[in-house]
């Protein structure tokens, strides 16, 4: 399916712009909104490119820089913080040998921090793409990451 077919069904739908951005980002192997994607949305919705850019840079789920196949989002809000989220982040960074915001050399993982993911019941928690992982310890991370090998 071409990119423009992908967003076809959102055109004309009031407020379809966010949905179109979601669809394009999800279809992109590098998990981001490319300049071409943004231009496509701008043209399809008749919205200035600057506004599309303004929207894309407002929401934290959108990225305008290429990312890995798997986005690891580590919650750093208070409920995870008090049960050791920073240990998880440190362990992940060490395990993947990247800093926050970076992508592994093989283009597989991108490490991000995020506000609360709403799975505080099993804190500390992370999300890898759409999948949630909770009750983590620095030791249990290896087995979680192994799921993506």
């Amino acid at each position: 399916m071409t990119q423009s077919m992908l967003i076809q069904r959102f055109i004309g739908e009031p407020g379809g712009l966010l949905k179109a951005l979601h669809a394009l980002q999800n279809s992109n192997t590098n998990n981001f909104l490319s300049p071409q994607d943004l231009e496509l949305v701008s043209g399809a919705f008749g919205v200035p490119l600057a506004k599309v850019w303004g929207v894309a840079t407002f929401y934290s789920l959108y990225s305008t820089i290429p990312r890995g196949r798997y986005i690891i989002r580590v919650c750093e809000s208070a409920p995870c913080h008090v049960v050791g989220a920073h240990n998880i982040l440190t362990a992940l960074a060490k395990n993947l040998n990247i800093c926050t915001g970076e992508t592994t050399a093989d283009g597989k993982f991108t490490l991000e921090v995020t506000s609360c993911l709403g799975i505080c019941g099993v804190a500390p928690a992370i999300m890898i793409n759409d999948t949630v992982h909770g009750n983590l310890t620095p030791e249990s991370l290896a087995s979680v990451l192994a799921l993506y090998n």
């Binding site: 300049p35 943004l38 200035p48 490119l49 600057a50 599309v52 303004g54 840079t57 407002f58």
Partner: peptide, 25 residues
Amino acid sequence: CLDVQEIGILYSTGRGKQTIVGTAL
């Protein structure tokens, strides 16, 4: 730019402290 001239070169970008009026990309 956007409403008077309807060109829309400038728009608010980013969020929080990073919010700034900017151009596309």
